[in-house]
Write a protein that binds this DNA or RNA. Structure first.
Length: 341
DNA sequence: CGTTGTTCCCGCCATT
DNA sequence: AGAATGGCGGGAACAA
C-alpha cells in the first residue's frame, strides 16, 4: 500500500548511527489545514509525523502544512500552498469544527489531485467529511466520530459508513474516529508502511499502547465511556503484563483467570469489556505482533519465531499471521527487507 | 484438504 | 433495587 510518488526518493544508505534510512514510501507527509481545522487532530498529526525521532531509530519524515494561511492555529512556520499536497505520500485531513460547513473547492480539488497522484489519504474525526465532500469516499468503507456518523451516512449515502470502529482502512484511504483514535490509526498505518518495530518505537516515545485494534468499539451515544476502577484496571494490566513477559508460555484463559484471582467467566467478561477483544484473540494478536517484530529484526527461522512467540507450531503462526497481516511470515519478511535499504 | 478432540466464549440465570 | 459474580450449556474457534 506504500505509495510511490515519482521523484520523491530520499537519500540512500544508512544514517550516521547505522540506522537504515527509508526511501520510496511515506517519507513526505502533508497536513491539510483551512479555516475550520481543529487543533487537536492537527497536533496529533504533527506529533506523529512532524517530530524528528531519528535518534530512536525512527525515520524522520518531511512534514509540511498546506492550505489556507488564514488558519489561526498554525503558530510560527510557513503554510504551503494546498497544491503541494499532491507531492506528498501521505495526506492527513484533521477534523473540522463544523462538519456541515462547505468545503472550499480548492481544498477538495487538492485532495483529489493528491489521491490521483497515488498519495495515501488519512482523515481524522470530522475530516472524513472533507474527503467525502471531495467525492473520494463513494463506495468505500469509512468512519468518523460516533456523534457524526449518522450525519455522514445521511449526507453521503454512497459511503459504507462503519459506526463502531476506531478506524477503517479501505485501500489507500484511511478514516478514523478522531481524537485519541487518530493515534491508533497512525500507529496502524505506520505498522503497514514501516513495520511493527518502528510503530512500537513511536508508540513507546508517545507513551501509548502499541496495538489497539481497529475493531475496538467507539463508546455508544449517549453514554460516557466506562470508567474502569483503579484496582480493576491494575489487575487487568498486571495479568496482561505477566502474559507479555512470558509470551512463549502456552497460556490458557483458565490460567489467566487464575492469575487474576477470579473465575473464568468473570475474567472473560471483564477482559472483553475493558480491552475490546476477547482474551484469546488478544493473546493471538500480541503473539502475531511479537512475531512481526522478530521477522523484521532477526533472521531466525519461522519455526523458531513461532516457538518464541508462543505458537505451538509454525503452522499455527502462519495461519494467524496471514489473517492479521495479510501475508505469510516469509513474504512479510521479504517485503519488509525490500522496502528498506 | 478433512477429521477429531480441546478450548473458547457468550447467553442465560440463580446467587451474592 | 441495581450491579457484579460465576456455574452451565453448546455452538464457534482453535490445535493437532
Amino acid at each position: 500500500m506504500a505509495s510511490l510518488t515519482p521523484g520523491q526518493a530520499g537519500a540512500a544508505g544508512t544514517g550516521a548511527d547505522g540506522t537504515p534510512r527509508y526511501r520510496c514510501f511515506m517519507q513526505r507527509v502533508g497536513v491539510l489545514v483551512f479555516e475550520c481545522t481543529r487543533l487537536f487532530e492537527f497536533a496529533v498529526a504533527r506529533e506523529i509525523w512532524g517530530v524528528d525521532r531519528s535518534r530512536c531509530g525512527i525515520p524522520a519524515f518531511e512534514f509540511l502544512v498546506a492550505g489556507s494561511a488564514a488558519w489561526p492555529g498554525h503558530g510560527p512556520g510557513r503554510i504551503d500552498d494546498v497544491r503541494e499536497l499532491a507531492t506528498c505520500n501521505l495526506v492527513v485531513v484533521p477534523g473540522i469544527e463544523d462538519p456541515s460547513a462547505d468545503i472550499p473547492e480548492p481544498v477538495a480539488a487538492a485532495l483529489r489531485q493528491a489521491h490521483h497522484a497515488g498519495a495515501t489519504l488519512a482523515s481524522l474525526c470530522s475530516g472524513t467529511f472533507v474527503l467525502a465532500a471531495a467525492g473520494l469516499l463513494d463506495g468505500r468503507k469509512a468512519t468518523a466520530h460516533w456523534m457524526d456518523v449518522d450525519d455522514l451516512a445521511a449526507r453521503y449515502p454512497g459511503i459504507r459508513v462503519t459506526a463502531d470502529s476506531l478506524y477503517v482502512q479501505d485501500g489507500n484511504i484511511w478514516t478514523s474516529a478522531g481524537t485519541a483514535a487518530s493515534i491508533d490509526m497512525f500507529l496502524a498505518l505506520l505498522r503497514t508502511t514501516h513495520g511493527a518495530t518502528v510503530a512500537a518505537r513511536v508508540a513507546n516515545t508517545m507513551l501509548v499502547a502499541p496495538l489497539r485494534a481497529a475493531g475496538l468499539p467507539q463508546p455508544p451515544p449517549p453514554s460516557f465511556p466506562a470508567i474502569i476502577r483503579d484496582d480493576r484496571a491494575s489487575e487487568d494490566s498486571y495479568v496482561r503484563q505477566a502474559v507479555l513477559d512470558t509470551l512463549s508460555h502456552p497460556w490458557t484463559v483458565r490460567e489467566m483467570a487464575a492469575r487474576a484471582g477470579i473465575s473464568e467467566r468473570a475474567f472473560t467478561r471483564r477482559f472483553t469489556a475493558d480491552n475490546g477483544t476477547t482474551p484469546l484473540q488478544w493473546l493471538i494478536g500480541q503473539r502475531v505482533l511479537a512475531a512481526q517484530q522478530l521477522l523484521e529484526a532477526t533472521d531466525l527461522p519461522v519455526a523458531a519465531i513461532a516457538r518464541h512467540c508462543g505458537f505451538s507450531t509454525a503452522v499455527s503462526l502462519r495461519t494467524h499471521f496471514s489473517r492479521h497481516v495479510g501475508r505469510t511470515p516469509r513474504d512479510y519478511r521479504a517485503d519488509y527487507r525490500r522496502k528498506r535499504l
